[in-house]
Design a protein around this nucleic acid. Structure first.
Lengths: 122, 122
DNA sequence: CTTTGCACTTTCCGTTTGGTAAGTCGACCG
DNA sequence: CGGTCGACTTACCAAACGGAAAGTGCAAAG
C-alpha cells in the first residue's frame, strides 16, 4: 500500500530575500492598486472600490483586511450617516509607494514603447 | 430547473492601467527574482536555478518560457557539451529592472525598519 | 416601521497555481 | 553501448485565488 504524499510545510523560498519580502506585501489581485490610490490621501471604501473598476467586494475587503493586519493601512470609522469607513496608509505603507511608483513609471514606458511599435511595425 | 451559472469571459480589469499592465509581467512565483538575477549578465538555466533556492524545475521552466514569449528575455543554446542554455534580458526586459530595483530597495528598507523595532519594542 | 445607503460577509464554485516525483532526450565521455 | 550531465517534461494533486450572487447589520430619513 502506498504512503500518502505530504507537502513539505517548511518555508521553502529565500527567507532573507528583500525582493521576496517586499513582494509579499504587493501580492494578491488589486493590492498595488489599493496602495496607489491611497498614496496621497485617505479614501472611503466605496470611493476606492470605484477607483478600481472590476474588483469584487469580497476580494476587496479581503485585501483591505490583510493590508491592515500587515500594518500597511489604517481603518477608521467616520461617524457620518450612514457610517463610512476611511482607509489611509500608515508610515509603513508609505514606504511601499516608491516601489509602486516605479512600477507605474515602467508601465507608462511600456505603453509608449507599444505605441512606438505601431509606427515601426504596424 | 435552475440554469447553469456562467462566468463572464470578458476582461474585467482596468485595461488601460499602467500599473496593472506592468504587474502582468511581474506576476507568478519567482518572476521578479529571475529578472533580478539577469539584470547585469546572462545566466545559464542551472545557474539561475541555484541563484533562486526553492523553485521547482517545472515552475521555473514555465516562467522562463512565459518571459521569453512576452519578449522579456532571450533564450540561447550554447554549443557546449552537454549543450547549455543561456538566458538574458532583452531591451524590453531591461525596462523592467528599475521597477524591480525599487522593490528591492523597499525590501531593504523594510528589513532595516524591522531591525529598528527590535531596539524600540523588543 | 419600511426603505435606503454603506460596508461588508457568506456561499458556492471554477480556475489557476505551484510543489513532488519521476521520466525524457540528446550529446558526449570512456 | 552504458553512464552521466544539463535541460527540460509529464502526471498528479492539494491549496489558494478570485468572481457571482445573495445576505447581513446598522443608522438615519421619511
Amino acid at each position: 500500500m502506498a504512503v500518502k504524499r505530504r507537502k513539505s510545510k517548511v518555508t521553502p523560498p529565500p527567507v532573507g530575500c528583500p525582493l521576496t519580502a517586499c513582494m509579499q506585501f504587493l501580492k494578491g489581485a488589486w493590492t498595488p492598486n489599493i496602495i496607489w490610490y491611497l498614496r496621497s490621501e485617505p479614501r472611503r471604501f466605496s470611493e476606492l472600490m470605484a477607483d478600481i473598476p472590476g474588483v469584487s467586494p469580497k476580494v476587496f475587503t479581503a485585501r483591505l483586511k490583510r493590508l491592515e493586519q500587515d500594518g500597511i493601512l489604517l481603518r477608521r470609522v467616520v461617524p457620518t450617516s450612514p457610517p463610512t469607513v476611511e482607509y489611509s496608509l500608515t508610515d509603513l505603507g508609505q514606504e511601499l509607494t516608491p516601489a509602486i511608483e516605479a512600477i507605474v513609471q515602467v508601465g507608462h514606458k511600456l505603453k509608449r514603447r507599444r505605441a512606438g511599435s505601431w509606427a515601426s511595425r504596424g
